[in-house]
Design a protein around this nucleic acid. Sequence first.
DNA 1: GGCCAAGCGGACCTATCGGTCCGCTTTCTG
DNA 2: CAGAAAGCGGACCGATAGGTCCGCTTGGCC
Lengths: 211, 211
Amino acid sequence: MAEVTKPLRADAERNRRLLLDAAAEAFAEHGLDVGVGEIARRAGVGHGTVFRRFPTKEHLIAAVVVDRMHQASGLGRELLADPDPGGALFKLLAAMVQAAQTDRALFEAVADTFLANEDIRAAHSDLVGVIDELLRRAQKAGAVRDDVGALDLLMMFKGVCEASRPFNDADIAARQLELVRAALRPVAAADRLQGQPPTLDDMERAFPRAG
Amino acid sequence: MAEVTKPLRADAERNRRLLLDAAAEAFAEHGLDVGVGEIARRAGVGHGTVFRRFPTKEHLIAAVVVDRMHQASGLGRELLADPDPGGALFKLLAAMVQAAQTDRALFEAVADTFLANEDIRAAHSDLVGVIDELLRRAQKAGAVRDDVGALDLLMMFKGVCEASRPFNDADIAARQLELVRAALRPVAAADRLQGQPPTLDDMERAFPRAG
DNA sequence: GGCCAAGCGGACCTATCGGTCCGCTTTCTG
DNA sequence: CAGAAAGCGGACCGATAGGTCCGCTTGGCC
């Protein structure tokens, strides 16, 4: 996980970025099944180069995923300063939904096998942390019911992405997000959810550490 | 689309069922990427047999999907007689969520390329029709906000499935479904959704007919 | 019971994928 | 500027997938 990376040579670093971008683009267009060859071609490098930088294809995917997650948590941190707690939370969700519409394929990766990857786990925990802060702020302000947790939110977010993905239509995604908003409105005591919100531990259980 | 199928020979018909069941099981366990060989082995037939009955692997997948969709719309029709309109709607959704938790992989298929398959399209339209009836009943009874459509529902359903899938935990899925229920509660005029519910035509646009 | 179409299954083909290897080139350092 | 280390890329490999073919078997009908 994020070793002490000695600096790459200039050309190597440049190619690394080219590859990450090309990979993100290729995954967005054709799903995770695009061949490494196609990615290399887009990046304008030999496909041997891919495997020197990323030991396996999974490593490459993981690197792209981590990249995107960092973007999201970065935005989330900025939004912590937003004067409108409820609005800030939904701004983040909206941005994530939009990003996800481009990077559809990556969410497959996160969900399926790759949470076994330590880098992704770390980036994911970080993101959950940020969302948690935004959520608590929104709850304290009375903008969101207080019987839901960050993971509930993240799951609903994922739901919106997956549900609206095939339409590839921003309006439809926005409509679904609006329904999420409705689901999150404060409710009468009688309508509160049973049980506790899922936790990161629940996820750990669902994704046992590699091995 | 559902040609006038001349009856199969007895052994062929038996093998067809064996294959469909084996395929459903294999897809559930290992995702859509299981080899045709593995499916054939489970069914206890040679893998050449698979390709005689289903010209390509996609046809096999489509057949399994159609099977499941018919089950859902069948249940939906029964529920139309349920004295509690709101409850009936959610009973169907709950059953579908549960089924989807087993047949995770199949939903991939529906979403991605396979709505290009005519059989699936037909089964899907039928299911949407049933859900639409159940939904209108529930709306007329005041159990559900009336600014959502059947496809809104189906999308949220899909969202719940996808979101809770990796947890593989019925409680978590139920919790998400409860949040959907919250989203569907009647709302004040000010909180109504903008625009119209998505229609089957929107889907047609998103999934152009094969060609 | 005998004939024949329908069905069967596994050997086989081909394409493609992830991944390795090695001779050549580029960058960095002293 | 020169030598060494790092990087490069494409030929190559093995595995595995979906799909075809054809000699043999089986079930259905007169």
